[in-house]
Design a protein around this nucleic acid. Structure first.
Length: 152
DNA sequence: GCCAACGTTGGC
DNA sequence: GCCAACGTTGGC
């Protein structure tokens, strides 16, 4: 089973929004970056752990945990001409963009800030630091253990 | 297929 | 709100 980090802006859809969904289950949509899309479509599986990271806020931090409850399916908004997520080049036969569904698990007692991650040499290899703009990325088992030991 | 222009992300 | 990094688009 794999571990992922999903970025989101809490002003748009944060960990609390997910928590407040029925059964804590929400749709992870709006991913419009090919590298992130490829992870979502090809590698994110039911049961995988998902660290939720809040970006564009103070402080940017890993704030909680969710798990995948539904693997990739085509994002209906890519066909909706009224939506910001509309993509004229998507077809029903060949969707470009995918969603997964995740379920709220936990809010960390001590969110792990970006600053703290930067200063923890054990986490220096995290893709979060290496590729700042990627919004869906894998996390190693070892990194996951270190992170959990810091936040609970 | 190169590369300049442009748009977006996201930390600060 | 600025701007660096970097992904995408489109002309050639």
């Amino acid at each position: 089973m794999a571990i992922w980090l999903f970025k989101t802006e809490p002003d748009v859809y944060g960990l609390n929004d997910l928590k407040n969904e029925a059964n804590g289950m929400g749709i992870w949509n709006g991913i419009r970056n090919y590298q992130a899309r490829n992870f979502l479509r090809d590698a994110v599986k039911v049961g995988d752990d998902v660290l939720i990271y809040h970006s564009s806020c103070k402080p940017a931090a890993i704030v909680g945990l969710a798990k995948v409850v539904k693997a990739a399916y085509a994002d209906p908004l890519q066909y909706d001409g009224q939506s910001n997520y509309f993509d004229a080049k998507s077809t029903m036969e060949n969707p470009r963009w995918f969603n997964v569904d995740i379920q709220y698990q936990e809010t960390f007692k001590k969110p792990l800030t970006l600053d703290a991650i930067k200063h923890d040499e054990r986490l220096a290899e995290m893709l979060l630091l290496k590729q700042g703009r990627l919004s869906v990325m894998p996390v190693t088992e070892q990194q996951f253990k270190i992170i959990l030991s810091e936040v609970r």
